[in-house]
Amino acid sequence: MSKLQGKIAIITGGASGIGKGMAMAYVKEGATVVIVDLNEEFGMQSIKELQAYAPESIFIQANLAEREKLAGIIDQVISKFGKLDILVNNAHASRIKTIEEATQEDFDLSFNTGFYPTFYLMQAALPHLKETQGKIINFASSAGINGDATQVTYAAAKEAIRAITRVAANEFGPFGINVNLIAPIANSPGMQAWAEENPEYYQAVLSKIPLRRLGELESDIGRVAVFLASSDSDYISGQTIMVDGGATKLR
């Protein structure tokens, strides 16, 4: 398996959950992965697993809300590897709040960890992705597409990410750079914890998924991320790919 042989990929939020699932899928396809995450403990554990497949993979501990340091992440990767082929903007933190409850602090958390890092990392990576005709994968959510209740700050940031991704697809396309979005429903640790606390609501969510299961981190979400990072997707750009078992059908 070598769809990504020799590629250098950055995955934010790569220490756990969907990010780790994608990272594992990438290294098994020959990529060297840089996982960027705030959680140093999880990051160090995950990088050891990745290095079993891709010994040069590294972990960068970073707080993506520190906007002034984002360009330095790209610089660090270029300094070490000399190039960048794939940028995956996966990290995002938010709070469950209704419109009535949401505060400026809640919006700041969602935009400072999701939207702004996506924008500034794309901006900083652009000169290097021009050289490699690389790939960008950003993350959307059905919470924004469908307007899920109690998800106002998360939904707002995710739809803002969708908007700038479409702009990037138009602006970066002439340089041979593909820019797409994944909108997943995943069997992540966070989802598992939520399901334990809300079993009835979880079953209601599951019943609305035609395939009647959550997506597996590596084999479902990770494989789509491999496709979007590989030459197999060279003629796809500006698209939101729903990796959600059929729960949302875009028109």
Rank of each mutant, 00 (worst) to 15 (best):
M1A: 02
M1D: 02
K3M: 07
K7Q: 09
I8Q: 03
A9L: 04
A9T: 05
I18M: 09
M22T: 09
A25H: 04
I35H: 00
L38N: 04
L38I: 14
N39W: 10
E40I: 10
E41H: 03
F42M: 13
F42K: 14
F42E: 13
F42Y: 09
G43C: 06
S46R: 02
L50I: 10
A52V: 08
A52G: 00
A54M: 00
Q61W: 05
A62K: 03
K69C: 03
K69H: 10
I73C: 05
V77N: 00
I78K: 12
S79G: 05
F81Q: 11
G82A: 07
G82C: 12
G82D: 04
L84I: 11
L84G: 06
V88Q: 09
A91M: 04
T103N: 02
T103D: 03
E105F: 03
D106M: 07
L109D: 11
S110M: 12
F111W: 15
Y116K: 01
P117M: 11
Y120Q: 06
Q123M: 02
A124T: 06
P127C: 14
H128G: 08
T132M: 07
T132H: 09
T132E: 07
Q133E: 15
N138D: 12
A140V: 14
S141P: 08
S141H: 07
S142W: 13
D148G: 00
A149T: 12
Q151R: 15
V152N: 06
A156P: 10
A157K: 00
I164S: 11
N170I: 13
G173R: 05
V179I: 08
L181E: 09
L181M: 12
A183I: 08
P184R: 09
I185Y: 09
I185A: 07
N187Q: 14
M191P: 04
A193Y: 00
A195W: 01
N198S: 04
Q203W: 06
L206I: 03
L206V: 10
R212P: 01
G215S: 06
R223W: 08
V226R: 03
F227T: 06
L228C: 09
L228Q: 08
A229Q: 08
D232F: 13
S233Y: 06
Y235F: 15
I236K: 00
S237A: 02
I241G: 01
M242S: 14
D244R: 12
D244I: 15
A247Y: 04
T248E: 10
K249F: 13
L250T: 02
R251G: 14
R251K: 14
